[in-house]
Design a protein around this nucleic acid. Structure first.
Length: 484
RNA sequence: GCCCCCAUCGUCUAGCGGCCCAGGACAUUGGCCUUUCACGUCAAAGACACCGGUUCAAAUCCGGUUGGGGGCGCCA
């Protein structure tokens, strides 16, 4: 049988990292078994769903390379893949359930439901609806009055009184005792299906074999299997992945900082970083490998190695991993990805980036070793670009007045002035030659020189830095020190 | 209140009864490399929540306690 998984987000915001991980696991599982990965948009909540966030979701998924075989944009044999376009299906299937005696219409108002619940709660009883109570409102007069106002009846599911259990692929056996929940709504008064109903209809019709989703849906599973059974349909396998928590151990939310794939993207995270990190947040490769390509993940992915305990989202490791990927990625790609950050910071214009591409390329290649997010590239680059007022502070003077340093800098100044080639190799030669006579302590000389040129004591390779700052500015700055 | 889930270094995890006085990765600390910083590299420190069982033997199995998370919507 073909393995079919789905990722079913509701378009009510950005793509949360938890959702991204769920999508990843679904994708990996499907690919691992040569199955299909389906994207379905769960937009039954007309109030909160927006086309804009649907597009955002699709963008983020595309950015991560999580290609779906069926869904919006690509179509498929089991569409439509947007719940808002499947209303008649939900309605007709609900009618089926009514005929089977598993569901019933109710002519009740939301406020009345609320009252029932409050009353039960105040009596110390669980706030569950049941047919006996709800049908009490179903009188001929009531129907007339209710529909007279243009209302459509709400359709309730009649929850069977029995135990249910599943064998979750991650959690293991889970049993829900009889009476855990009461009757629940299938179709709202606005004609829209509720989540717990629509999911089942869709998963059934889309022939989903494995439902891999967040832990927060575990309790919902009870309702859902009841609906499957009412249709006498096969229940899919379930795999509930644990939540992602913030550093304080609470469910990861916006107050913890960046939580969406988009935010990480805009900070200069590479998609492979996010994918790799998220894969490891709850799953481990059998041979302990940590840095993995998506293909390597596909080859070794299995639900049996997905951890059942919640995980804290640790940006520290994410950052390290991104730095690692930035250093090892193709340089041309890093160049192209860096340009937007550079122009955004107004460090250089788009034109400048292209006309001095060779120079910029070299500069980025040099600073990429110390960067963890691409958004830090401009800051690192500024030392080669901006003009500095050099402060000849006491620390500088210490190095500058050290034995032989001043003379060597003078000598270097002369040699550099006569250097027309301006290649890193010749710059290095010049510096070495400059040291020959006065023989300064290497460290003092380089430190003084660096400070005189960049106003900093730390930075990337000095020779390359000199090369990148450019001959004119180097001479200009050297001139000042020499005349000190 | 009721139901469900979870519990190994600070963090992510390996471990599925003896190979574990618990292994790896990030972070931390120290060394090396180096003109500095970074990278890289080597090393150190650092955990089985607690209490009872079962067993010749438990991080691993069972029960309880505690702690954490999720759910109990005409949200998904």
């Amino acid at each position: 049988m073909e393995i079919r998984t789905r990722f079913a987000p509701s378009p009510t915001g950005f793509l949360h990292v938890g959702g991204a991980r769920t999508a990843l696991y679904n994708y990996l599982f499907a690919r691992r078994h040569n199955g299909k990965f389906i994207l379905r948009i769960e937009d039954t909540d007309v109030e909160r769903s927006t086309k804009e966030s649907e597009n955002q979701l699709i963008d983020a998924l595309t950015w991560m390379g999580l290609e779906w075989d069926e869904g919006p944009q690509v179509g498929g044999d089991y569409g439509p893949y947007r719940q808002s376009e499947r209303n008649d299906i939900y309605l007709s299937k609900a009618k089926e359930l009514i005929e089977k005696g598993s569901a019933y219409e109710a002519y009740i108002y939301p406020e009345e439901l609320e009252q029932i619940k409050e009353k039960l709660l105040s009596e110390g009883k669980p706030p569950h609806y049941d047919y006996e109570t709800i049908s009490g409102y179903d009188t001929p007069e009531r129907r007339k009055e209710y529909t007279g106002k243009g209302n459509k009846p709400v359709i309730f599911f009649k929850m069977p009184r029995k135990d249910y259990s599943i064998n979750d692929l991650i959690k293991g056996p889970v049993t829900f005792k009889e009476g855990a929940i009461g009757d629940f709504i299938l179709i709202r008064s606005n004609g829209q299906p509720t989540y717990n109903y629509a999911v089942v209809i869709d998963d059934m019709q889309m022939k989903i074999t494995h439902v891999i989703r967040g832990d927060d849906h575990l309790s919902n599973t009870l309702r859902q299997i009841a609906v499957y059974e009412a249709f006498e349909a096969n229940v899919p396998e379930f795999a509930h992945v644990s939540m992602i928590l913030g550093p304080d151990g609470k469910k990861l939310s916006k107050r913890h900082g960046a939580t969406s794939a988009e935010e990480f993207r805009s900070r200069g995270y590479l998609p492979e970083t996010l994918l790799n990190y998220l894969a490891l947040l709850g799953w481990s490769n059998p041979d302990g490998k940590e840095i993995m390509s998506v293909n390597e993940m596909i080859e070794s992915f299995g639900l049996d190695r997905v951890n059942s305990s919640p995980a804290i989202f640790d940006e520290t490791k994410l950052k390290w991993m991104n730095g690692n990927y930035i250093r090892n990625a193709n340089m041309e790609r890093i160049f192209n990805l860096s340009v937007p950050f550079i122009t955004e910071e107004k460090l250089l214009t788009q034109e400048q980036c292209q006309t001095s591409k060779k120079w910029l390329y070299e500069a980025i290649e040099l600073v990429r070793t110390s960067v963890e997010e691409l958004k830090d590239i401009p800051k690192e680059l500024s030392v080669f670009i901006k003009d500095y007022e050099i402060e000849y502070d006491s620390e500088f003077m210490e190095y500058f007045t050290a034995q032989g340093v001043k003379e060597t800098i003078k000598e270097a100044y002369t040699l550099i002035q006569n250097d027309d080639s301006w290649e890193s190799e010749t710059i290095l030669e010049n510096l070495k030659n400059a040291m020959k006579n006065a023989k300064p302590q290497k460290k003092s000389f380089y430190l003084a020189l660096r400070k005189a040129l960049t106003n900093q004591f730390h930075g990337p390779d000095l020779v390359k830095t000199i090369h990148l700052i450019g001959r004119a500015r180097v001479i200009e700055r050297l001139e000042k020190v020499v005349n000190l």
